[in-house]
């Protein structure tokens, strides 16, 4: 609280504490929270680096304008869809979205390579199907939808070259397409080809479930470690929907 005291002096600080207590009591009275949740409410003290983090904020974000007219701003706050009934939830859960069925990359002579819906193992390893198939991370976005859809294929496995053996040959501007089980096809264009050390793969970015739409094709790259039966790198091709 040192930054607060410095900012507002001793008397306002007392007032602050009183306001805090009043607010706390109101909340407590209103909802009878567990002690754990109450603790969260109490902990409004800034982090130790609070002053510097406050300095990083642009002046507009101090919230003064909002404070003067919270009511008006609240009235303009977005309404969300109403809370769903159990029937609606069940219906949503049963709704099936189109799933990717195959990938075609003309520049690599890959024609309708089967795409298999794939998950993740308990140890965090993405499941990748047989060498001549490509795995779609089914818990992430569908290719073409918001977020980063992932298709992972082997460079080589079980002694044979995999579907993504020559992925490294792709260049920005190259075209590829994904066909879906509803008969539709989405065309993509390569934006970049990047090699990462395996541990340095930007997982949060590549598996993002929302945000900018992109398609990430992932295979292995770098040197093959014969002892570990594993490659040192991941090669990533990032593509986006052809406008």
């Amino acid at each position: 609280m040192s930054s607060t005291l410095r900012s507002f002096g001793a008397i306002p600080a007392q007032r602050l504490v009183r306001t805090l207590l009043l607010a706390m009591m109101a909340l407590l009275a209103a909802c009878g929270q567990s002690s754990e949740q109450v603790d969260d409410m109490v902990d409004f003290s800034p982090p130790s680096e609070g002053v510097s983090s406050a300095e990083k904020q642009p002046p507009a974000s101090t919230g003064n304008a909002l404070q003067v007219d919270v009511g008006g701003a609240l009235a303009a706050a977005p309404a969300l869809p109403p809370a769903a009934s159990l029937d609606e939830v069940a219906e949503a859960a049963n709704r099936t979205e189109p799933e990717p069925l195959s990938i075609t990359i003309p520049g690599l002579d890959l024609n309708q390579v089967p795409v298999i819906a794939s998950g993740v193992t308990a140890t965090g390893e993405m499941e990748v199907p047989s060498p001549l198939e490509v795995g779609w991370y089914r818990y992430g976005p569908t290719p073409g939808e918001p977020g980063s859809a992932v298709l992972a294929g082997h460079i080589a496995s079980e002694g044979v070259d995999g579907a993504f053996r020559y992925l490294e040959r792709l260049k920005p501007g190259d075209q590829l397409s994904v066909a879906f089980n509803d008969g539709s096809v989405t065309n993509f264009v390569v934006d970049e080809v990047v090699d990462y050390a395996k541990s340095a793969l930007p997982f949060d970015e590549l598996f993002a479930r929302s945000g900018t739409s992109q398609l990430a094709l992932i295979t292995c790259g770098g040197d093959f470690d014969a002892q570990a039966r594993s490659y040192e790198d991941n090669l990533v091709v990032v593509a986006s929907v052809v406008a």
């Binding site: 993740v120 082997h154 460079i155 995999g162 292995c220 991941n234």
Partner: peptide, 12 residues
């Protein structure tokens, strides 16, 4: 999210 993507267990 997965924490590793192993896409090769044999030499090319």
């Amino acid at each position: 999210n997965p924490t590793v993507v192993n896409t090769g267990d044999s030499p090319i």
